[in-house]
Nucleic acid binder design. Structure first.
Lengths: 161, 161
DNA sequence: CAAAATTAAATTGCACGCAATATAATTTTG
DNA sequence: CAAAATTATATTGCGTGCAATTTAATTTTG
């Protein structure tokens, strides 16, 4: 016998449809992340930045002179990812790395003039990306908020284990 | 003459807000993708699968015996990513790789018994992920549709260049 | 205060992801 | 039909991500 509508809505059924790539939020997110990456690439290439490096720059434009740990918390990345990335950002002249005098364990990351100047270009990049998304500002804001909530839920549940 | 302080501050702060990590959809998507990845890991590890490998399995559960190219189109991945990944999936016993007799350029990927059997477990994984997301099925469906639209827009604009 | 525990970065090893190139098979074309 | 163009897959090199380990500095504690 058929389930009623309410059950159908709140239960993931064990049929092929449920496993279809096209129905999975995780795949939609995976695809959107790659699409964004590919859209950013031609905009960032002229500045010698990769997308994750650009995220670090965003963090530093907000708050200069942060520790590796602070940047890692902002981006949810660990030193295994950040240490080599920051060395490349230093090699390309965008940031400086300096041991903290007060606590020699820490490394402080600060913007060079070149890194600071790049911020002006970032507004143009933002415009381009906004156009490419083809969404209204309201839609973008709504999506962003929903995804932030989702990410929080996923993190909370992992922490609770 | 210089603008007064109030004007200067408001103008800069507006711009800064636009570049804030917390306001950027691309970063929300980047973070959600990583959060999903981390949530999937403990669920997939026991089966010896990574998340991208799991996506390939989803594609094959929908449609067995696909070419590398077809899988690449389904997942937006090229042979540079898929060739080694598929070799690892073959090494772990989940799929078989076989040259197509009709067209020796193509390689057909098909499920082994082990790979097919894993589909049963996938429904349980799906349940776990659904729970971890903390969203209603309606919310999940809505988000998925919006992200698919966004991804389409980004792809279309890249193709138009 | 010295030993133990904790903390911050860096390093190593492995698996993507992608650009660029290489190789081999098939199709197009002149 | 043979040369040229196209197509499918594989390979190489580089930059993430992340788990696990290492090293050095600081904090805790017995």
């Amino acid at each position: 016998m058929m389930k009623n509508d309410r059950d159908a809505v709140e239960t993931i059924e064990q049929d092929d449809g449920a496993l279809a790539l096209g129905q999975q939020l995780c795949f939609a997110i995976y695809s959107a992340a790659h699409a964004f990456n590919r859209t950013y690439k031609p905009l960032l290439d002229p500045h010698g930045l990769t997308y994750p490096q650009y995220l670090v720059m965003l963090a530093l434009w907000q708050d200069d002179n942060q520790t590796v740990k602070a940047i890692g918390e902002a981006l949810s990345l660990d030193s295994g990812t950040l240490s080599p990335l920051l060395k490349r950002l230093e090699a390309s002249g965008h940031v400086r790395r300096k041991r903290d005098r007060k606590d020699e364990r820490q490394v402080l990351i600060s913007l060079t003039d070149k890194g600071r100047d790049l911020k002006k270009e970032a507004f143009g990049i933002l415009q381009e990306i906004g156009k490419a998304s083809g969404c209204s500002l309201d839609t973008l804001r709504g999506l962003t908020a929903e995804l932030q909530g989702l990410t929080e839920n996923l993190k909370r549940l992992r922490a609770a284990e």
